[in-house]
């Protein structure tokens, strides 16, 4: 016993809760997902095309074969994935991703009354 907090024992304090929150850090951020979708759209593909050729990964659920691009989630099987597609959360996410681009540092700078960045002349013609 002992320490600062009378209700929290030493053993409890030693445990890190970071591992419990691990999933929160692993989820891709909104703007990253948005960029990915934009890249796909430029290549002329849609989300269904991209999910057909996925690399096999033993550590992921369903060997990493059933992936939702919008929500950045892996599923155990096709049926679970389909169920996810029908969920409210997924539909909300799609709506969000088809809307305006997420806030960026450039937006923040423009709002602060700065002009567009000046990169000068292009020196290398590639």
């Amino acid at each position: 016993m002992g320490g600062k907090c009378p209700h929290r024992k030493v053993k409890k304090r030693r445990l890190s809760h970071k591992t419990a929150r691990r999933g929160k850090f692993l989820v891709k951020a909104d703007d990253a997902v948005y960029d990915e979708l934009l890249k796909l759209a430029d290549a002329g593909k849609d989300a269904a095309d991209a999910s057909q050729q996925l690399p096999v990964d033993e550590d992921l659920p369903g060997m990493g074969q059933f992936y939702c691009l919008h929500c950045d989630r892996y599923f155990a099987s096709e049926s679970v994935k389909e169920e996810h597609y029908r969920s409210k959360r997924h539909k909300k996410r799609i709506k969000q991703m088809s809307g305006p681009a997420p806030h960026t540092q450039l937006d923040a700078e423009l709002a602060a009354g700065m002009g567009m960045p000046d990169n000068g002349l292009k020196l290398m013609s590639m």
Partner: peptide, 27 residues
């Protein structure tokens, strides 16, 4: 309370020639 909100909703001036001076110059 953010600038992004205020500019988007027409609370602040957004288009002005005085905004052309301050910018990131990467050269």
């Amino acid at each position: 309370w953010t600038k992004a909100y205020r500019c988007l909703h027409g609370k602040d001036m957004t288009q002005d020639s005085t905004f052309e001076f301050e910018r990131k110059r990467n050269r």
